[in-house]
Simulated scan of single mutants.
Amino acid sequence: MTDQKMEPFLRWQGRSLEYLSYAINLFLGLSIAATGFEMSLLKDPKFILVDWQKCIFFISILSLIIASGLGITCVLNRIKDFRDTTSIARKKSKDEYDDELNELREIVGIIGSRTRTLFSWQVWLFGIGAFLLVLVMVVFYSDKLF
Rank of each mutant, 00 (worst) to 15 (best):
T86I: 09
S87E: 14
D98G: 08
I61D: 00
S68W: 09
G71F: 02
T73K: 12
N77P: 02
I61L: 15
E100G: 03
I72M: 07
R90W: 04
L104M: 07
F82N: 06
F82E: 06
R90Y: 09
T85L: 13
T86D: 11
S68V: 09
S93P: 00
R83F: 08
F82T: 07
T85I: 09
E96T: 08
S63L: 06
N77M: 14
E106V: 07
S63C: 14
L64H: 06
G69M: 07
Y97R: 05
D99G: 02
I66M: 09
I61M: 08
A89E: 10
K80R: 13
D81G: 13
T73C: 14
K92L: 13
F82C: 03
T73V: 10
L104V: 06
D98C: 02
I107T: 11
S87A: 15
A89L: 15
N77A: 15
T85N: 13
D99Y: 05
D99N: 13
E100Q: 15
I107P: 00
D95T: 09
I61P: 00
I72C: 06
T86G: 04
V75N: 08
L76A: 11
L104D: 08
R83E: 08
D98M: 03
L64S: 02
I107H: 14
I107C: 02
G71H: 07
I88Y: 00
E100A: 15
I107W: 01
R78Q: 13
D95C: 09
S63K: 00
I88D: 00
D84K: 15
S60T: 01
E96W: 06
S60W: 00
T86Q: 12
E100H: 12
L64Y: 07
T86F: 08
L64K: 04
I107F: 10
G71S: 07
L76N: 14
Y97D: 03
I72K: 06
T86Y: 13
I66G: 12
F82K: 08
A89I: 12
D81S: 13
C74V: 04
T73E: 12
G71R: 02
R78I: 13
R90S: 12
A89R: 11
L101T: 03
E100S: 15
A67H: 07
L70V: 08
G71Y: 06
K94R: 11
D81H: 15
V75H: 07
E103T: 15
L104T: 05
D99K: 02
I79Q: 06
N77R: 11
R83V: 08
L62V: 10
F82W: 04
R105A: 03
Y97W: 14
K91R: 09
L64D: 04
S60A: 11
E103R: 11
T85F: 11
K91C: 03
L64C: 03
L104R: 03
V75C: 01
I61H: 01
I79A: 10
K80S: 13
T85R: 15
E96L: 07
I88M: 06
G71M: 10
L62T: 04
D81Y: 14
I59K: 00
S68R: 05
L76D: 04
L62R: 02
D84T: 11
A89M: 12
E103I: 09
D98P: 00
K94I: 00
K92Q: 10
S93M: 11
S68K: 08
T73D: 13
L62F: 13
A67W: 04
I65G: 01
L101I: 02
L76F: 14
N102T: 01
E96D: 10
